[in-house]
Amino acid sequence: MTSTDFVRADPRGPYAGAVVSLVGYRQRDIEQRLHRGLPSPYLTFVVSLDNPVVVGEREDDPEPVSAYGMLGPLAARPAFIDQPSAQEGVQLAIHPFASRWLFGVPASRLTGLALDVRDVLGAPADALRARIGDTDDWGQRFAAVSGLLAERARTASGAAAARPRPEVVEGWRWIVARGGNGRIDDLAAHVALSPRRLRTVFVDELGFGPKVLSRLVRFERAVAMVRDQTVAPETGSLSDVAARAGYADHAHLVHEFRTLSGTTPTGWVEEERRNLQAGGHRNGAS
């Protein structure tokens, strides 16, 4: 019988802002063999305990990335994850501004759909997996993650320790506050940069311009609404989701969902229904 459990932690402490969500997962006898990783405005950091995470650019990717610690950079396309019958580990959604001190480089320097965390962090990646695997207690596992954050912040130096440009920080805040629905010309005026210069500083830090980041922020809001609608159907229809998320209409929502994820909202729900009902896909984590 399939068993799916998600254990959620409330990130606290001086580095809480770096972690958008922190989730422990344990699944057994999984029937769904392929999981679709949706685009997000946050980095995805996974530490798997029993089986490596296998990520491809398409369902039949002949050369997927396989690793026990996986980092998903910012992307505007889906990743396809092969699911073994049993899996257990910890998944974080990381704020892209934390990439400097956590991974040593701006988020723009982390490219592709998936990276082996050992290639980014080195020995600390193996040490973290060992500490998490040494205990079955989720509190201790989450404490190990917090310990890594603290150590990386304490030892960051040079460019890794530098803050992003204030225009990018304020631009991010502005985009998120508007749910990804603000006009780029208005944002440029707000941070006193030309639209071209605004795009340059965003790409330098995040790898995408403000237009793409706005699409990702709006898409993630829509995904959250679709998730909530699946769990509690009385919350409204897809047309309601489209209106609340800022899409022109239902057709626009479906088109954007297909463009960014490779499937429709209804198709995604059918793929992920069991995870959704078990409490997955909250705050950027699945």
Rank of each mutant, 00 (worst) to 15 (best):
F202T: 03
A224V: 06
V201Q: 06
A189E: 13
R221W: 09
E205D: 12
R199Q: 15
Q229A: 15
G209A: 00
A242F: 00
S239V: 05
D204I: 03
A177I: 05
L193W: 00
R218D: 02
G246E: 01
V201G: 03
R183N: 10
V217R: 02
R199T: 15
G179V: 08
T200Y: 15
K211P: 00
T200E: 15
E234L: 14
K211S: 15
R183W: 08
A189M: 09
V201S: 07
D240A: 06
V212K: 04
R197C: 11
G180D: 07
V201N: 05
R227P: 01
N181Y: 08
N181T: 15
L187Q: 06
A242E: 00
G182K: 08
A189K: 12
S194I: 05
G179Y: 07
R199H: 15
A224E: 13
P233G: 10
E220W: 05
A251R: 12
R218C: 05
L216E: 03
R244A: 14
D185I: 11
K211Y: 10
F202G: 01
T230L: 10
S237N: 05
A251K: 11
D240M: 01
M225T: 01
N181C: 15
E220G: 03
A245M: 07
L193M: 10
L187M: 08
D228V: 04
L206V: 08
L206E: 07
A177D: 13
A243W: 04
R227T: 07
P210D: 01
E220M: 10
